[in-house]
Design a protein around this nucleic acid. Structure first.
Lengths: 206, 206
DNA sequence: GTCTATATTTGGATAGAC
DNA sequence: GTCTATCCAAATATAGAC
């Protein structure tokens, strides 16, 4: 870690890796492609991260620490104010991801990297994510359980599982809907989030 | 193409490739791994398919031709009988995929391969799928448009996009719900399909 | 159609100078 | 911290015998 003013080599590598992992997958993006895109030397990856696997984990850590914090913060605020409802809890989950995706160049591609992690049955990666960020899903599941007391545990879990799938897929922008000309990226994603909350709330409530 | 009695080399390669693509992704599975798993010679891939990219396309073609036919057949049957409703049209889309996934060893992993195709922004692959199988989604979209006349075109497309995401993710079994001990694979998947139709219908109707 | 052997490229990782 | 140069393993693909 360092505190340089400009983008450090480390940051340049993380940014380039994120983009290439989103585009080509973890196996599909080579370290040569990553370092070329980052305009740093090939050897810098091993110097800063030790291995490709460690680099992959750092790509997640850089975004997920902050994202998880914001999601739980919003959830806690809602519950403290007694404002928890299906729509607001879904909003607490989705809006931080939406903001991240609108942040700057890196944010929107990270959502695609995250969706790829689900497609990978790589057990190292799944274990890493579950160990480090599983508590976020657990807290949200508990909140939904309180809001949907008429559903038994099994029914609730099925619906949450389906909801997470819809959210993951949509936030990664894997769908067929293209942004209309004249519509900004921000407007497009805000529309998506709005529809997503509406659809998912209806599915959970069904 | 050939008509041999046993599994031909070609079929053995397709089966092994399907499994390895599901598990490790298209870039992550090497032709060496594929031919080793298929117990055929390394050179056989290039002999039968010409290249790795062609092999990938054949893995899709082998399943999607049949799957698309069955989906459209069910849809046509429903409409001819005047039985089209949100639930039955969703069923017409999902049940053939469910049956395929229960078929034999190959079917369930193919659903994961299909989901991987969405995560790949590989434009060759997307173009191939859209060119060859896009008409299926178009026909179903038209059916939903007739069933949901109160939704304007834009609203409908957003919801269908989200629905396709939920279906893709769930049919690939990417979720966190594990099959319970004492529950068969068939029961597990039938439960999933049931919840999926219910959830998605509610979201579309919202 | 299938094999062995090999050409050729690309990948992750490291050594050692600066 | 960064570079060049290089090692070594693994990849795709092909040539040519059978």
């Amino acid at each position: 870690m360092q505190q340089s003013a400009q983008f450090s080599t480390r940051q340049k590598i993380l940014g380039a890796a994120e983009e290439l992992f989103a585009e080509r997958g973890f196996a599909g993006a080579s370290l040569r492609q990553v370092t070329a895109a980052a305009k740093v030397n090939l050897a810098a990856v091993n110097y800063h991260f030790g291995s490709k696997d460690n680099l992959i984990e750092e790509v997640f850590r850089r975004r997920l620490d902050e994202l998880s914090r914001r999601r739980l913060e919003r959830l806690a605020t809602l519950e403290a104010a007694g404002d928890a409802s299906l729509d607001t809890v879904l909003d607490a989950f989705i809006t931080p991801a939406l903001e991240l995706s609108l942040d700057r160049k890196g944010g929107s591609v990270f959502m695609r990297v995250l969706a790829r992690a689900f497609a990978e049955h790589n057990s190292n990666l799944r274990t890493f994510l579950s160990d480090n960020y599983g508590y976020v899903l657990k807290d949200f599941a508990a909140a939904f359980a309180r809001l949907l007391p008429q559903l038994d545990k099994e029914e609730l879990y099925w619906r949450l599982d389906i909801a997470v799938g819809a959210l993951t897929y949509a936030m990664a922008d894997f769908g067929m809907i293209q942004r209309r000309s004249g519509e900004s990226e921000r407007e497009h994603r805000e529309q998506m989030a709005k529809h997503l909350i509406h659809f998912t709330a209806a599915g959970l409530r069904a």
